[in-house]
Amino acid sequence: MSFISYLINGISLGSIYALIALGYTMVYGIAKMLNFAHGDIIMIGGFTLFVVMNTLGLPPLVAVLIAIAICTALGVIIEKVAYKPLRQASPLAVLITAIGVSYLLQNVALLIFGANTKLFTSVVTVPAISLAEGQINISGETTVTIIASIIIMIGLMLFIKKSKAGQAMLAVSEDKGAAELMGINVNATITLTFAIGSALAAIAGALLCSAYPTLTPYTGAMPGIKAFVAAVFGGIGSIPGAFIGGILLGIIENLSKAYISSQMADAIVFAVLIVVLLVKPTGILGKKINEKV
């Protein structure tokens, strides 16, 4: 029975990774850059919620909406200021800039809120479910996280398949030059991608801080890196891949915490990444891209 509850907790953690990984994978697919600061946008979302709920005393749903708005704006601003001028630069330069942005966000949060751990009040009000005569308990956070991530994932797939903006995203990720010739506004599309990715990060932040109710300026860093691992695991650039990768990673992490060693769980997750990249460098659902001279 305990195996099943570990598994369910793993799926819940995995759903959070999946939400973050969706943002990573969309940005990577379109801008071909690793947005290292993505994890820290989660942290900013968490702090926004904390301030809005505790200081202003607004209800959780309003707070989540405000956090989404702030994170979206932040994502768009970061893209305009730091990444847009570097479209033609070498990938190394863009990656270093992204690391710089990540550090900037962490340290601004550190200066404003201090290094002390903040206790976060859960935004979820759904009651816990008890199954099999109380042997399996599923918390409200777990239920909401899993359902929310499934809804978001389906919504995102529909958006990309059915809407014009979504089709433009696909086109830009396939071939930027050709997309521009077909009359697609490439810059606007990239900005939209960053906006969606950051909004997802805000939701992930709300769910993450509800499930693990502590908040520091470094809260987002590790989940961010793990979500990137999840995106690579599932095949970067692929939306279902990010989802599957996230869920699998959450399950692996929780099961190794339960059965092997809680200290080694992170190491096991990273070891899985290395093995996956060696066996299948493009990930589970990734496409192989041939390089031309």
């Binding site: 001028p85 570097l86 070498s90 330069a93 990540s102 550090y103 900037l104 340290n107």
Partner: peptide
């Protein structure tokens, strides 16, 4: 207290200064 903040800004500004077309 501001050391890491300054590092972060230095990283971003250096990259923009080196690579941005306007700079």
């Amino acid at each position: 207290d501001y050391r890491m903040l300054i590092y972060a800004i230095v990283l971003i500004v250096m990259m923009l200064f080196n690579w941005s077309p306007k700079a």
